[in-house]
Design a protein around this nucleic acid. Structure first.
Lengths: 205, 205
DNA sequence: CGAGTCGTGTTGACGATGTCAACATATATT
DNA sequence: AATATATGTTGACATCGTCAACACGACTCG
């Protein structure tokens, strides 16, 4: 074995495969990732990747999982360090989620589009996505206690919020939201409407 | 030309292709649709479909467009004929949207997953989706006038609502919402939170 | 230091797929 | 009846994912 995991002939081909696949996805979508082409680009043969990933799906799943990790860290940063009130920070988490998706459309699509990944060992992916969800649940629990948010099942609240931001990101990525529209304003209005619908009120219906 | 469009050797192969493709999608997902397999099932050769559709993408686009038509009619039915107050009808439209998606998961995924359909002449699809959107915009305009809904840009409101229901459907279809959860309750809570966030209020912040 | 073992990469091959060109035939048109 | 057009078929090609067989480098153990 090697101390630096996987550095034989090529020099950490596994990492190179992950990086190159991510590049190809960003450039031309997940459908453009081909075992043969990725080999060509890295100067190895077509079968070389099979020494590091069981099949193409496994490679794509690993790339997608890395995307979830990046997204998770990004949300944590907002939660921890952004300025503004507590509820405002929650709202900004939603904004940041959508921004991540808009900045990495093809990667985001891969993360959620199980169609591209023929059903297989996707528990790893589901778990990666779930980690983000659990984090969101905790945030809602916190805000229920601090009084800004209605005391409902926080898991349900988290699903509702997740749905809204994921849906907005998804529709935009698929080109369903016309470019003439103000996407930043739309992100803002989405997160605001959500919060408005979940906030505790003193009076009125 | 024929009076009954396309009824030569086979007897309306075009319609048969659309129907069989839809069946295959429901059975095993869009990835299972193959020009050769669909030919086998219909008893024609592998190249026969090319007389009716330019390529595989064109066939899938047509199937997806048919899905949008079905969805649109279903929503119109709710809007026109459901019982309950005006705002309650709006909420039920959202519920019905999600239900359609849950009943036809693979088809719904095809309708929005442009990844499966290599970028090409998808204006037809976008337009089909847009027809539903425009319908939704009108509903919001109506409810703004009748007083239940905040007077904001109705297009933005429609996008927010669409995002929420599409996101919920999408997450469920991709298996991100745990089966132990009460999906019907979640649909309800999603539509309620949305409406709550958009409704006009007399007092309170 | 030498032999063997295992990790890593290569080439050859197979079946499946989308699609085109060339050909065949049925239907419509005149 | 003759011709044109719509429809369907077969052959072929490039590409793809993947496996088996082989080759080589690096580490281990004597």
């Amino acid at each position: 074995m090697t101390d630096q995991a996987g550095a034989y002939h090529h020099g950490d081909l596994r990492a190179a495969l992950l990086a190159e696949a991510a590049t190809m996805i960003a450039e031309a979508g997940a459908a453009s990732v081909t075992m043969r082409e990725i080999g060509r680009r890295l100067g190895v043969s077509r079968a070389a990747p099979y020494r590091h990933f069981a099949d193409k799906t496994a490679l794509l799943v690993a790339v997608a999982a890395a995307g979830f990790d990046r997204l998770k860290r990004r949300l944590q940063t907002v939660e921890a360090g952004a300025p503004g009130s507590s509820l405002e920070r929650l709202r900004r988490m939603g904004e940041e989620y959508v921004r991540f998706a808009l900045e990495n459309p093809a990667h985001y699509r891969l993360m959620y589009g199980k169609e591209a990944l023929t059903r297989q060992d996707l528990p790893a992916l589901r778990e990666a996505a779930n980690a983000i969800f659990e984090q969101l649940v905790e945030v809602f629990q916190t805000h229920q206690r601090s009084g800004g948010i209605k005391r409902q099942d926080p898991r349900a609240q988290a699903y509702v919020a997740w749905s809204a931001v994921h849906g907005l990101a998804s529709l935009w990525i698929e080109g369903q939201i016309h470019a003439t529209d103000d996407i930043d304003g739309l992100i803002r209005q989405t997160t605001r409407t959500l919060l408005e619908g979940m906030r505790v009120r003193r009076r009125g219906a």
